[in-house]
């Protein structure tokens, strides 16, 4: 039974983070588009230098967060304050797989497996911390009833969680397509077991924290 749930969780997270990642990537190849699809103001500016006025243009550069930034970023956006001992140890195991320079072409499969694992570790801490708090004291899972199973999760509650996670991790509101992807992944969580609600929230959180947009700068 436990094995079934773990397998279910693993597949859900991988599919979800991949789907959200691909969603983030759906933008034209132009370097002047941010991953969220927003346009960047590219008006040239003249800068007064000792050599006279020179035209300069800010260039939008998208880089993968470097190995030393990954954990800091996840802890910062999750609001956990500092990593737990377990997460620190997880990070030590995976950090050598992460990009040092942050160049886009340094992304590879092992690296992303590591990012999913670290994100999962941070999200597990987040779900554990919030699920024992009164809903009014939570930051992300305010409308989730952790004493009941996933059957009792309403669409509004799930959308609220996605909104809060997106504003923290992506610094923007989610898009309708992204809600659809997460909800689809959550479709496999049914029943009345309260632990499944935690697992569902862990999946949602990990999917969003492990997405490309969370891990670029």
């Amino acid at each position: 039974m436990i094995r079934f749930y773990l397998k279910n969780f693993f597949y859900s997270v991988v599919l979800l983070s991949t789907a959200v990642m691909l969603q983030s990537c759906r933008f034209p190849g132009s370097a002047v588009r941010s991953p969220s699809g927003e346009s960047i103001v590219q008006a040239p500016t003249f800068v007064d230098t000792p050599q006279g006025l020179i035209e300069t243009k800010p260039v939008e550069v998208v880089r993968i967060v470097s190995s030393e930034e990954i954990l800091n970023n996840l802890i910062s956006v999750s609001g956990l304050g500092e990593p737990t001992e377990r997460t620190r140890n997880d990070f030590k195991l995976w950090r050598t797989l992460f990009s040092e320079s942050g160049e886009a072409d340094s992304i590879n499969a092992p690296m992303w497996t590591g990012i999913v694992n670290i994100s999962g570790s941070v999200c597990a801490d987040l779900v554990a911390a919030e699920s024992i708090q009164a809903s009014s004291n939570r930051r992300f899972f305010n409308q989730i009833d952790f004493t009941k199973g996933p059957d009792f999760m309403t669409d509004t509650a799930v959308e609220d969680v996605i909104r809060r996670l997106a504003r923290s991790a992506w610094a923007r509101n989610e898009k309708p397509e992204e809600i659809a992807i997460v909800k689809q992944a959550l479709g496999s969580f049914t029943g009345s077991l309260k632990d499944d609600t935690k697992l569902a929230m862990l999946t949602t959180c990990t999917g969003i924290f492990a997405a490309l947009e969370t891990n670029i700068k």
């Binding site: 800091n72 956990l80 500092e82 909104r163 504003r167 923290s168």
Partner: peptide
């Protein structure tokens, strides 16, 4: 200790150009 400040997201807050 280095502790990152926690933020409670505001689901309905406007994201202005100045905020970005």
């Amino acid at each position: 200790y280095f502790i990152f400040p926690a933020t409670t997201p505001n689901p309905n807050g406007e994201i202005t150009i100045a905020r970005k």
